[in-house]
Design a protein around this nucleic acid. Structure first.
Lengths: 154, 154
DNA sequence: GCTTGACCTCAAGTCGACTTGAATTCGTAG
DNA sequence: CTACGAATTCAAGTCGACTTGAGGTCAAGC
C-alpha cells in the first residue's frame, strides 16, 4: 500500500503541507483517501507537484496550470501553448538584456551624475514607453465576479 | 509659475492620480504646494516619475527606489548596486533561456505524451531544484515589525 | 447663486499564493 | 489509559502596489 501521508509528500516534494492543502482546495491536486482525518496521497502526486513547480517556474499561474491537466489528470499541454510561452520568454529576455546593458553602461559611465549621462536619459525614455515588467500571462485583466474558492469536484 | 495639477502630472506621466497620491504618502514624491486642497507639483516630478518607472522596470521595489534618492532629492544610485542588478538580470536571463529551450524542445518532441519525453523529464528535475522565478531583490524576507504607512517627512 | 467637475481624505478592497493560529481530532507508543 | 505528535478545519493575516468608493471641498463658468 503505497499511499503517503501529507508529511511524507511535503518532505519529498519540498512543498509545505499548508500549500498542499491549499492546492487541494483549489482542485490542483487531490488526496486519494483518508485515514481517520488524515489525507492519503497516491505517490503520483509527486510527479504532479513537479509539473506544478515547473509551471510556476515558467511563469504560469496556478489557474493556468490547473487548466493544463485534462479531466483524466494527465498533463495535457497544447504544444502551441508551449511555443507561445517560449516566445514570451524570448521577448522577456530581449527586454532584460537591453536593461542589463543599459545598467552596466550607466554603472561604468564617467558622467558625474547619472542624470548627465546620455545613455541614462535614453533609458528613461524607453523605460517609460515599454512595460517590460514580468507579466507572465495577464493579457486581459478582465473582472471576475466568481467566488474565490472553487469546489474541488468542479 | 509652472506648478502642475495632479491631473496634468498624471496625464503627462501616465501614472494614475491615485498612484501619485500613494507615492506621496510613502514619501516617494512630494507636492510643492496646495491651491485650495489641490496638490501642486513642480514639473521636476515628471523626471522623478520616469526614474521611478525605470526602477520598477528594473525590478526594484518602491522602497528600494525611494532609498536611491538622496536627502537632496537627487537620484543617487550606487554604481555597485547597478552592477549587482545587472548581474541579477543576467542570471535571470540564463534561467529563462534554459526554460525557453526546454519548452521549445518539448513542443517539437515526437514522444506521444510530454511525460514520455526525456527532455521533459529532465526539465522537471531541474525545475524542482532551482527557484528561477522572478525574485528581484528579496534575499532575506526578514520580518518587519514597522508600521506600514511611513510619514512623508520622516 | 448654482452647478459642474476636478480634486480631496480616509478606509477598505483587490490580487495570488500561501501562511499562521486556535481549537480539535486522530493513531500510535508506552 | 494516557500522552504525544501529527494532522485536521476554518478564519484571518501577509505582502506590494495600488484601486475603489463614499462623502466632502473648492474654483470657475453660466
Amino acid at each position: 500500500m503505497p499511499l503517503l501521508d501529507i508529511g511524507e509528500v511535503s518532505e519529498r516534494s519540498g512543498v509545505p503541507a499548508s500549500a498542499l492543502r491549499y492546492y487541494e482546495e483549489i482542485g490542483l491536486i487531490r488526496s486519494e483517501a483518508r485515514r481517520g482525518l488524515r489525507r492519503q496521497y497516491d505517490p503520483d502526486v509527486l510527479l504532479r507537484l513537479s509539473l506544478i513547480g515547473l509551471g510556476k517556474t515558467a511563469g504560469f499561474s496556478l489557474d493556468e496550470i490547473a487548466a493544463m491537466f485534462g479531466a483524466d489528470g494527465q498533463p495535457n499541454i497544447p504544444r502551441e501553448q508551449l511555443r507561445a510561452r517560449a516566445d514570451a520568454l524570448q521577448r522577456q529576455m530581449i527586454g532584460l538584456r537591453t536593461l542589463r546593458d543599459a545598467l552596466r553602461h550607466v554603472a561604468d559611465c564617467r558622467a558625474p551624475t547619472h542624470l548627465e549621462c546620455p545613455a541614462f536619459r535614453a533609458l528613461l525614455k524607453t523605460a517609460s514607453r515599454r512595460p517590460l515588467a514580468y507579466t507572465p500571462s495577464r493579457p486581459e485583466p478582465e473582472k471576475k465576479l466568481l467566488p474565490k474558492r472553487r469546489k474541488p469536484g468542479g
